[in-house]
Write a protein that binds this DNA or RNA. Structure first.
Length: 582
RNA sequence: CGGGACGUAGCUCAGCUUGGCUAGAGCGUCUGGUUUGGGACCAGAAGGCCGCAGGUUCAAAUCCUGUCGUCCCGACCA
């Protein structure tokens, strides 16, 4: 492609609306333009990369046994009512009424396609002989995000690869899951991403049933606990704190229980400042409604509650923070003064709570806290649980070494679903014994547009983007330095033609601009290999090439330049391929 | 949904506090000329419902009210 024949609107300055590097650079390099919050146009450069990512995904999905289909974004709302996800999605599900003749249809724009694909399978699969089956598509998804942000990282309309596996038993499901997991590793490696598979919340099947693929990045929205020595990595929601139940006994240094006045101090921070103590000395008492009944959850003052863990510990189905009225009922005080001593509801404590000697907690009385709170004497717990988010320094559940927290961008998710959808949508099969069972599902998603953003976010320098060869919009950027020089253009054009004839994806900057201008744009859009044809070089029979990641260009003979470039590209492709797991 | 910031030329921004000439600059665009290896220079030109609506005032980009939009923090995110 010739630059003057396409549409690459680069920008010299950072748009005011963009804050993080990927958003700024994708705008400046002319990959995307915003239409409204959470909706972006992909310009030629962005679209080319997107298509290359899609091609890689297709190759790997096909190799892993996936069958491509294409389902409608437009879906009847009753499918979501049957699976209960109309309510589960709530406002995130875009849905509306349309008139059709004298009828009114209630439709949704698909946020994902479990319902549609399961309905399809329910209608056409009925025998174990037809299974296993894995269907996938690459398609636009719609989610009414409460807060779209960070450019293309979180949008209300985005491209996703979603795959769904259908199996007769858990062994089959495990096999597909492993295949998909492996395919995902290959996809992200081929895209040149530095990725980390992390354990995620696993839902009904439990165990090792869900992994998210994260790209470590400071601006990532997800928090991951990571252990360098064991390789253990888990979503913050999921990560084990590695703590064990402590011995529960009253401290030998127990001081007397005392009530202190703490007017208007309702937060851990305010109380610790007022009493000149650290949050670690405090007991945080959170009142939850667990399946409708109040329960006091005790945590160390500096820790965060984890509702999924609380739900599991209590074997409950619903857990939510209690309202002010309930809190007054069980504590006898407004929100902010709850404590375990004398509270009128069951207590459940985190492992780290009973070991706090002479703790400070709310007094269950307005404007008052207690000091010298000790387990056994002042409040009773018989056992403890892991009820909180892990924090940096917590021991790794595998190695015991301190874990660290890293931020990440979620680019993929593999998940063993089980029979949630097949049961509600009647997707059954008959086994060898003519017995009917619900089909066992798995689902596997990749945020295709997010892969692009993650690459931009993690692969750039102060001058612009830097693409891997595999997904770069173009592999080679050919720069003739003076388009008015007929001799020079003759060489440039023959390079352009020959490279194209050899299957190289080449962009020629044929704009009538000064060299410096072109070099700046070259760095900004980040094409991996830059080839410069200039008057000075031609005089000595040389052309110049430079990898985007190199600092200085190298020279090679004009006559053999094309072969040199082809060789360089081959070599680089091999290097990139060597990073892909086999 | 709670909190904060912003909205003036295609882009980045000044002007608003303390209302008052024809609303400015740099970059970009167009024309002519000089240039040509890291975002050139000179001369000229085009380009604005100052987000929108209402109000106060002799007079509003500027003050007030409302509204829409965008961004950031938080909540939310099968």
């Amino acid at each position: 492609m010739r630059w003057t024949q396409t549409f690459i609107p680069t920008m010299k300055e950072n748009p005011a609306d963009a804050e993080i590097p990927s958003h700024q650079l994708m705008l400046r390099a002319g990959l995307i333009r915003q239409l409204m919050a959470g909706a972006y146009t992909y310009l030629p450069l962005g679209l080319k990369s997107l298509k290359k990512v899609e091609a890689i995904i297709r190759e790997e999905m096909n190799a892993a046994g996936g069958i491509e289909i294409f389902m409608p974004a437009l879906q009847p709302i009753d499918l979501f009512e049957r699976t209960g996800r109309k309510d589960a999605f709530g406002n995130v599900l875009m849905n509306f009424h349309v008139r059709r003749g004298d009828r009114t249809l209630h439709v949704a724009l698909g946020p994902t396609h479990e319902e549609v694909v399961t309905d399809l399978v329910a209608r056409h699969i009925s025998s174990y002989r037809q299974l296993p089956l894995t269907l996938y598509q690459i398609q636009t998804k719609f989610r009414n995000e409460e807060r779209p942000r960070f450019g293309v990282l979180r949008t209300s309309e985005f491209i996703m690869k979603d795959a769904y596996s259908f199996s007769t038993n858990l062994e089959q499901l495990d096999a597909v899951y492993q295949q998909m997991y492996h395919a995902y590793c290959r996809i992200f490696a081929r895209c040149g991403l530095n990725y980390l598979p992390v354990e995620a919340e696993s839902g009904p099947i439990g165990g090792d049933a869900s992994h998210e693929f994260m790209v470590p990045a400071d601006n990532g929205e997800d928090r991951i606990m990571y252990c360098k020595s064991s390789g253990y990595a888990a979503n913050l929601e999921r990560a084990d704190t590695g703590r064990k139940p402590p011995q529960i006994e009253t401290s030998k240094e127990a001081k007397p229980l005392e009530k202190v006045a703490t007017p208007n101090a309702t937060s851990i921070e305010q109380v610790s400042r007022m009493l000149k103590i650290t949050p670690q000395q405090m007991i945080k008492t959170l009142i939850y409604l667990v399946d409708g009944k109040p329960v006091a959850v005790l945590l160390r003052g500096d820790h965060e509650a984890n509702e999924a863990k609380i739900r599991r510990a209590l074997k409950a189905s619903q857990v939510a923070l209690a309202d002010g009225v309930t809190i007054e009922e069980v504590t006898g005080a407004p929100t902010g003064f709850a404590g375990p001593v004398g509270i009128r509801c069951p207590i459940i404590a985190d492992h780290d709570v009973p070991v706090i000697a002479n703790a400070v907690s709310g007094a269950n009385e307005v404007d008052a806290h207690l000091t010298g709170v000790n387990v056994g004497r002042d409040y009773q717990v018989t056992t403890t649980h892991d009820l909180r988010n892990a924090t940096p320094g917590d021991p790794c559940p595998k190695s015991g070494a301190p874990m660290e927290e890293v931020q990440g961008i979620e680019v993929g998710h593999v998940f063993k679903l089980g029979t949630k959808y097949t049961e509600s949508l009647d997707a059954n099969f008959l086994d060898q014994n003519e017995t009917r069972h619900p089909i066992i599902m798995g689902c596997y998603g990749i945020g295709v547009t997010r892969v692009l953003a993650a690459l931009a976010e993690t692969s750039h320098d102060e001058n612009g983007l830097s693409w891997p060869l595999s997904v770069a919009p173009y592999e080679v950027l050919l720069i003739p330095l003076n388009v008015d020089d007929a001799e020079l253009m003759k060489v440039a054009n023959s390079y352009y033609d020959e490279l194209k004839d050899n299957g190289v994806d080449v962009l020629m900057d044929d704009r009538d601009q000064r060299p410096g201008f072109k070099f700046k744009d070259a760095d900004l859009i980040g094409i991996p290999l830059r080839v410069v044809i200039g008057g000075k070089g031609l005089q000595e029979g040389k052309i110049e090439y430079k990898w985007r990641t190199d600092s200085a260009p190298q020279k090679t003979a004009v006559d053999t330049g094309v072969e040199t470039i082809l060789g360089l590209l081959d070599e680089r492709r091999k290097v990139e391929a060597s990073r892909v797991p086999g």
